[in-house]
Simulated assay, not measured.
Amino acid sequence: MSVEAELKALRAEIEQLKSREQIRQQITRYGRGQEWLDGSLMDEVFYDDAHVDFGFFVGEWKDYKPVLMEIEAHGETTFHLCAAPQIEFEGENKAYAEVYGIAGGRGHDGKTNVFGGRYFDVWERREKTWKIARRIFKLDWHIDHQFPQGEAVMHPELEPAKPRSPQNPLFRRMGADVTG
């Protein structure tokens, strides 16, 4: 292999590694946007015209976002973990990812729900930014538990991050500057 060909191959490999890391950052940003109830952060993950299918909602991201934010706002505490992303590229501007997700939370009524499932995503790079163009979520399992009155108490010495909003002093904006 010539030096020029080797250099070209290395540049392509580096570009793919950068793209893979940008997609991973976006996957993490998805959970953060829900936790902090930050719709603008979520917009950095999805194209407005992205097609989403969560079973109970099928349509475009721009129409799903208010539904999602309303659901998330009803939880006293919530948790979202996206893990083990398998990312495969098709050319320079398209990628597919399968991501395991665990999400849950506790409502003000003491009811706790935990969901485990998988996200099947199509990612596109438009104007140098990777975002989700299509997402399908499939639920693999669900745990629903109602604690008796008074038993679903947080440890008093461990306070949750309240309020769950970008106005919380613990919130740090780590937006498009990371992936742009």
Rank of each mutant, 00 (worst) to 15 (best):
E6S: 13
A133Q: 02
I132V: 10
F56L: 15
F147M: 08
R29E: 08
P160E: 05
A103M: 08
V153E: 15
H51P: 07
D109R: 00
M42L: 15
M1C: 03
Y64S: 10
A83L: 15
K128A: 11
R106F: 06
R125C: 15
V178H: 01
F57M: 15
L170A: 11
K18W: 10
H74T: 15
A50H: 01
K18E: 10
W123F: 05
F89D: 03
Q26W: 03
F56R: 12
Q22R: 10
W123A: 00
P148R: 04
P66Q: 11
A152G: 15
W36H: 03
M154Q: 10
G117S: 03
E6C: 15
I71A: 14
K162Q: 14
R32D: 11
P163S: 06
I23G: 07
E157K: 10
M154Y: 04
E72G: 02
A5L: 07
E4Y: 11
E159H: 13
K62W: 13
W123R: 02
D49V: 00
D38A: 01
I136H: 15
V114F: 10
A103R: 03
V178Q: 11
E72P: 00
E60K: 10
H145T: 05
P85T: 05
S19T: 03
F171I: 07
Q86C: 08
K131E: 07
I136L: 04
D53W: 00
E159M: 07
E151F: 13
K65V: 09
T112G: 01
E151G: 01
G75R: 12
A103D: 14
Y119P: 01
F89C: 14
P66F: 01
A133D: 04
Y100C: 14
A84L: 11
M42T: 02
F89W: 14
Y96F: 12
K162Y: 14
F89N: 12
Q34V: 11
E15M: 03
G180P: 01
S165F: 10
F57Q: 09
S19H: 11
Q34E: 06
